[in-house]
Write a protein that binds this DNA or RNA. Structure first.
Lengths: 340, 340
DNA sequence: CAGCTTATATTAAACGTTTAATATTAAAAA
DNA sequence: TTTTTAATATTAAACGTTTAATATAAGCTG
């Protein structure tokens, strides 16, 4: 139906090769096109309303100009978390700015292995993974297929590029904020073990505490609301004097659970207990009191990952394949700080 | 690198055509393969670890087995709304169950027209659009390219399949719930005009009110939190006796704004004003009080759209191209109803 | 057994690009 | 003028499938 290169070549009175080189960047070392023919070809293309067929191009070059984006399979959780929408937007934005398309995959129990392999087969040039399980078979599969993988927020044991947020600094930032507000007994509601962000955030907290001469108190958490609530209930049950007056939670969701617990105990935040969360998710502004949180530019993670991946695909020399993106403190009601 | 059909043909001592027919469904009318050769081919494929190259297949057939999914461009809004993640999950789920992949696009101001066309070019078999502007150039472009478009929650003027939720019934359901709780003065915070869900929801509200012999009162809204807040402030300023004791908001976000306003007036929900929202978004459970809302199975919208689209692509006879998915009422604190 | 039909196979032409290997022409150098 | 180099072009072979058009052999029918 649509015009193809042959049609253009015929109309312009040239060869297909000249058309190919003219219409796309000259890849050939030995082929030059004179300004005159170039002009004829461009005009013919214009007149015929030529549209390149990317499929044919991909078959010939082995490059699809498509990168994959695999959503993790945290059942009934990823579903509702705005986090991934943000990452997705970052990825599609950066990709489309560089002329790439994005293929969306959802990881499920079955497709962790072979299914994924089949889906990926030759269809994408590279893959972006978000906080994958540390030993996903997808890595091997991509290596076999020669597809670079950029990982966001996973273990950085992987060979490919790895984008993460400065969790250690975030932990410090949150803790120092509470310390500066005069709190001494600050508890930390830590994240799920096995998730790469958990330890650095806790370490930042510990270092800030010991630098201030306060003793640290970490309590169990797993990033979920209810676990945050339960751990906080235990904290609130501590005898007066030992009870923390502030809590730094490893994410907003568990901070939210902490707020539940505080309310249940007849206490009030930030008056009785100050809270700082982590992620600055959208619901930080929905919760009552609004949640003071560490912001980590989620969309930037996606943008950066896509950008890095594409640079690698295009053979650029990469200075830093393991960037650590900066975090910032977003002050809201729950920390009891006067707005700055 | 990997084995191709030619390699299999050589090893099995047959022709490429036999391999193609054996390994994929027999499309040819005139080609049969005996059980014996079939077996040889399958074994050779197994031994060589054959993987089909979908690109080459697509080039030959003109079918990619990829459907597109375009996120709308509502700046700074779609970013944060878990709604689209749910839709996306529904789509990828249904697509992958039927052997299709999903290409993710983000609509932006520039790519509404030509950019989108370029991106789509030959890469996808069909497209799913979510609440697109009623006269998007994308429709024309897809028509030109012969690509069917399934629309979720848009105007159903489009020729293609259209999946929507039963907004009229939802409006009725919400209103009847409040009526049954004894409310007489119930206001409706309507949605943005021009969005297809706005009018039916309002009509359902009006019909339920008039059936109950109450008079309707619709106030301006646009699905946003602050507008919901402002309209509600005006409602609360009405003289006692005229002030509504309940509000049905066209979505959860504006319901949330209504809660803001109620709190600002020193009132309390549900004690002073009962609220029912719409969408049953994730933050319905985050807000205080938790938000009674109409649930519309967002993931189902995506699932159904993908399913319908693929059926059309595969030439199935479609009974209902404009399904209306059922809604349900999710009772939570803000309506002041005892849990059922 | 000639003449059909059916089952089973192969050939070769697409699909629309890219690009290495040549070929031709023109300009510069000797 | 002849030779060398550079610029500009074409040819044709990939890339890996699908499928229409044939071909061959075997099994029936009368």
């Amino acid at each position: 139906m649509g015009a193809k290169m042959l049609d253009i070549a015929n109309r312009a009175g040239t060869s297909i090769a000249a058309v190919s080189v003219t219409l796309n960047g000259a890849k050939s070392k030995t082929l030059g096109v004179s300004p005159a023919t170039r002009e004829k070809i461009l005009q013919a293309a214009e007149e015929l309303g030529y549209r390149r067929n990317p499929l044919a191009g991909s078959l010939a070059t082995g490059r699809t100009h498509v990168i994959g984006f695999m959503l993790p399979s945290v059942e009934g959780y990823s579903d509702h978390d705005p986090f991934y929408t943000l990452v997705a937007n970052g990825i599609t934005g950066a990709a489309s700015a560089r002329g790439y398309n994005v293929m969306l995959y959802t990881a499920t129990a079955e497709n962790q292995g072979l299914r994924a392999a089949r889906m990926i087969d030759k269809r994408i040039d590279g893959l972006v993974l978000v906080s994958p399980p540390s030993s996903s078979p997808i890595y091997e599969e991509c290596e076999r297929q020669g597809i670079p993988v950029a990982t966001i927020l996973g273990d950085d044991t992987a060979t490919g590029p790895h984008i993460k947020s400065d969790d250690y600094e975030g932990g410090k930032l949150a803790t120092n904020h509470l310390l500066k507000l005069g709190h001494v007994k600050i508890a930390h509601l830590h994240g799920r073990f096995g998730v790469s962000t958990t330890l650095p955030r806790e370490q930042g907290y510990k270092d800030a505490m010991s630098a201030a001469g306060s003793s640290a108190l970490s309590v169990p958490g797993d990033f979920n609301r209810n676990t945050g609530r339960e751990s906080t209930l235990k904290l609130m049950a501590l005898p007066e004097g030992e009870r923390p007056t502030a809590i730094f939670a490893a994410n907003d969701l568990s901070a939210h659970g902490a707020l539940d617990a505080i309310r249940e105990c007849g206490l009030e935040s930030p008056k009785d207990v100050a809270i700082v969360g982590y992620d600055d998710t959208w619901y930080s502004t929905v919760v009552q009191p609004t949640l003071c949180s560490i912001h980590m530019g989620v969309a930037d993670l996606g943008r950066r990952a896509a950008d890095l991946l594409i640079s690698i695909l295009e053979g650029a020399y990469i200075v830093d394949t393991h960037p650590v993106l900066p975090v910032s403190l977003v002050i809201r009601e729950s920390s009891g700080s006067p707005r700055v």
